[in-house]
Computed example of a mutant assay.
Amino acid sequence: MRYLIEGEIIRSENAAKSYKQKSKFVSNYLRARPSSNKVMDFGCGKLRYSDEIVSISKQVVFLDSDLQLSRNQMVRGVSTSVAEYVSTHYAHAQILSFECAVAQGVNSCFDFINCSNVLSAIPCVDYLQSALCIIYSALQGGGEALFVNQFRCSSFSKFESGRRHMYGYIYKGRLGYTYYGVMTNDVVVDLLVPLGFEVVNVWSEEDVGFVLVRRPHTVIA
């Protein structure tokens, strides 16, 4: 996804990390989850956690911007697109663009949604709210969503030299402008609760924050 913020283009697709840079804490959590019928990897990027996601679900949807899904890049050691990699490596998986999800909506059929290191890369309030609303609407009653954010990193002092924006900073590097949002667990909870999410658990592992929430069951009067 690309954003025009205060006259500068922010190419958030460049923030996606390789599968070689996965967090052991996130990987261990995903592998330990009970099997689900249908799982979404929201903001799948370069399929950083795709093996873990596929291993716990009968059906998987990998969601990201149309640009991230379709452009040619290195995906899990192969020069290809995310869409092509998914179609040739994961039999029970499909892709969905963020743009399509916004325009057409998503059925409330997912047992679990993974959203790892995504919120910190969205530099626009409207898009951030749209992303959270899509996740809420995609969950079935009782379905859970995991929000993971790295709220400290080795480059944090570098980002702080940029200008303040939303929850973090806009920084100009060698590849252009990037946004780094400091999404602490408290910030994430404050964003989720007003939308109707129920908080299940909140914890941290070193510099990685985890917020696990669920969509409440619908009560029929």
Results as ranks from 00 to 15, higher is better:
Y3G: 00
L4Q: 03
E6I: 07
I10R: 01
S12R: 00
E13D: 09
K17V: 10
K17Q: 15
V26E: 00
S27P: 01
S27W: 11
N28R: 06
Y29D: 01
A32F: 05
K38L: 08
V39N: 08
M40H: 02
F42Q: 02
C44P: 00
D51E: 15
D51T: 07
D51P: 07
V54A: 15
I56K: 06
F62D: 01
S65G: 13
D66Q: 08
L67F: 05
L67E: 02
Q68A: 09
L69M: 09
R71H: 12
Q73E: 11
S79V: 13
S79Y: 08
T80A: 10
T80S: 13
S87L: 05
T88V: 14
T88Q: 11
F98S: 04
C100L: 06
V106N: 02
N107A: 15
C109L: 10
C109D: 08
F112H: 03
S116V: 07
S116D: 02
V118D: 03
S120A: 09
A121Q: 01
P123Y: 12
V125L: 13
V125D: 04
Q129P: 04
L132W: 00
C133A: 13
S137I: 05
E144A: 09
L146T: 12
V148H: 06
R152D: 12
S154K: 07
S154E: 13
S155W: 03
E160S: 04
G162T: 04
R163F: 09
Y167R: 00
I170V: 15
G173F: 02
G173M: 03
R174W: 09
T178Y: 03
T178I: 14
T178H: 02
Y180V: 09
L192H: 00
P194R: 09
L195C: 06
G196H: 06
G196S: 11
E198G: 12
V199H: 04
V200E: 14
V200G: 01
V202I: 14
W203Q: 05
E206L: 10
V213L: 14
R215N: 13
R215L: 12
P216A: 13
V219I: 14
